[in-house]
Every structure is written in structure tokens, then in C-alpha cells.
């Protein structure tokens, strides 16, 4: 099994998180936005797992399982919303829904 400094694992998690963040902010297509959110959640879970591996505790993995549950529920609702959105606006461009403009 690998013996790497815990920082390295956390760096990777942070890098993945930031990539997901850029995706959320840049993409206008809602499917990409949802995928980027998945990436961010996964990165957060990875940080837990890395920390759990570092301290030899099961708690990190348990947090990952909870995040996983949350991601599953979120994807289900998010995809349903996307379907309705497409049905309503005939597009997946998030900027199409801007009636809340002040």
C-alpha cells in the first residue's frame, strides 16, 4: 500500500475541487454544471478519505458514504429539474432563465 504524505492527497483533492468550481462558473449548459458539481462533491469526499487514511480511522470513509448519498439524491433531483427546464425553455442554457433580473 502507498505511503505518501497526506498533503499530497489533499492537494489533489483541492485541485479537483477547483477544477469543478471553474466548471460551475464557466459552463452555461446545465448538464455540465451538474457534472462539475459532482466533481466538487467527489473532491470533498476524497479529502475525507485521505484524512481518514492518514489517521487510520473509519470516520473519513463514513463521511464519504454520506456525501455519496447526498450526491445521489442531488443528482436525481437535479436531473429531474434539468428535464423540466428543457421542457420549459427548449434549451439547457442557464442564462435563458433570468426572469429574476433586478
Amino acid at each position: 500500500m502507498a505511503q505518501v504524505p497526506m498533503e499530497h492527497g489533499l492537494y489533489v483533492a483541492g485541485l479537483l475541487f477547483c477544477l469543478g468550481l471553474v466548471g460551475v462558473l464557466v459552463r452555461r449548459d446545465l448538464l455540465f454544471v451538474l457534472m462539475s458539481i459532482e466533481i466538487m462533491l467527489n473532491a470533498a469526499g476524497m479529502a475525507f478519505v485521505v484524512a481518514g487514511a492518514g489517521w487510520q480511522q473509519p470516520d473519513g470513509q463514513i463521511m464519504f458514504i454520506f456525501i455519496l448519498t447526498m450526491a445521489a439524491a442531488e443528482v436525481a433531483v437535479g436531473l429531474a429539474l434539468i428535464v423540466q427546464f428543457h421542457h420549459h425553455f427548449k434549451t439547457l442554457d442557464a442564462d435563458a432563465a433570468r426572469r429574476m433580473r433586478g
Binding site: 460551475v24 462558473l25 464557466v26 454544471v33 442564462d95 433570468r98 433580473r101 433586478g102
Partner: peptide
């Protein structure tokens, strides 16, 4: 200030971030 209320999701997310 109300000009910041663009109605675009990305802009709000950008603000949050």
C-alpha cells in the same frame, strides 16, 4: 446595486464563490 441582479445563475454563483 440592482444592476448586479442579472438573473443569471452563473453571476450569482460567482458572487457566492
Amino acid at each position: 446595486l440592482s444592476r448586479t441582479q442579472t438573473g443569471k445563475l452563473r453571476d450569482y454563483a460567482l458572487g457566492v464563490v
